[in-house]
Simulated scan of single mutants.
Amino acid sequence: MRGRHILPPPGKGRTVVQTVGVVLFMGAMAWASVPLYDWFCRVTGYGGSTNYADAGSEEILDQTIKVRFDGSLERDMPWEFRPLQREMEVRIGETGLAFYEAYNPTDVPVAGTASYNVAPFDAGVHFTKIDCFCFEQQVLQPGERVEMPVTFYVDPDIVRDRDAKFVHTITLSYTFYQTDLPETTTEQAANATGADAAPRAN
């Protein structure tokens, strides 16, 4: 029967549109997944992400909590890195100050950035940093050894949190991984090398 057009089943066109929409949505989510996940972790404390504050807590409880410190390095990071104290006990809401030590045993400048997490995860949203070496890239010169502070407090809301109120010990862990040197450092190193290689006038 010529001239007769076979129409697609009802709803088929709509299914195609929905499929395309899902594909586009998934692509957009993949593109935004890192910042969205980071935001989600900061808000909820999921994955041990911490909070930030410009100043200490206005409320300090008589109840104490123990904070442990851990440090490690990515496989190719040539530094030495460790906490200078293994643990401390602070009152909830009280500002604590801890130090980590980093050492560059190589003969070249090395830059590093620290990632971190808090365990147990339920306590992450209540662990608040005021200042930390992890907020910015660190550059150590050849043979340089530094002490790097982290200032923090445990938010009193932890005692009112259904999931975290029974936490008695929090572990703060940092892992340093090597990153590209800032351009200024790279240029200074190149200039220094060139100066050393240049022949000296008699």
Score class of each variant (00 low, 15 high):
S72D: 09
S115M: 10
P156M: 07
R68I: 12
S115H: 11
V154P: 09
V150W: 07
L36E: 04
A102P: 11
R82V: 15
N51T: 14
S72H: 04
K66V: 13
N51C: 13
L97G: 13
Y153P: 13
G48S: 08
V139A: 01
N51F: 11
T113S: 14
V150I: 15
D54R: 08
R42Y: 07
V110I: 07
C41D: 02
D122Q: 08
W79I: 08
F121G: 05
F99D: 14
K66N: 05
P120C: 10
L61E: 03
T106A: 05
A102T: 06
A53H: 08
A114P: 13
Y46C: 13
Y153G: 05
P105H: 00
D122T: 12
T151K: 13
E87T: 14
A114W: 08
Q141N: 02
R86G: 15
T128I: 14
D70M: 12
Y116M: 02
P105S: 10
L36V: 13
D54S: 15
T151G: 03
C134K: 01
Y103K: 07
F127E: 01
P149D: 11
T113P: 11
W39L: 13
Q138K: 06
M77Q: 06
I158S: 04
R82G: 12
T50W: 09
M77H: 06
Y46E: 10
E144H: 00
D155F: 10
Y116H: 01
D62L: 10
G47L: 07
Q138A: 06
P109C: 01
Y46G: 09
L73C: 09
N117A: 02
F127H: 02
Y52V: 15
F99H: 14
D38Y: 09
D54W: 08
F40Q: 03
W39Y: 14
I60F: 08
D62N: 12
T95C: 12
M77D: 01
R91M: 04
E101A: 07
W39T: 14
V43A: 10
S115F: 11
D62Q: 09
E59D: 09
V90L: 06
W79T: 06
V90S: 05
K66G: 05
D76Y: 12
E87G: 07
A98G: 15
R145D: 02
F99E: 11
S72A: 01
Y100G: 05
Y116F: 08
D157V: 03
C134H: 06
H126M: 12
G112H: 04
F127Y: 08
F121V: 15
L140V: 05
D155T: 11
N117E: 07
E58C: 02
S57L: 12
S115C: 03
D38C: 04
P142I: 09
E59A: 03
E87A: 14
R86Q: 15
L140Y: 04
Q63A: 04
C132A: 10
D155H: 04
G45A: 05
E89I: 11
G48Q: 02
D157C: 08
Y116A: 05
V118T: 04
R145Q: 10
W79D: 00
I92T: 05
C134L: 06
H126F: 13
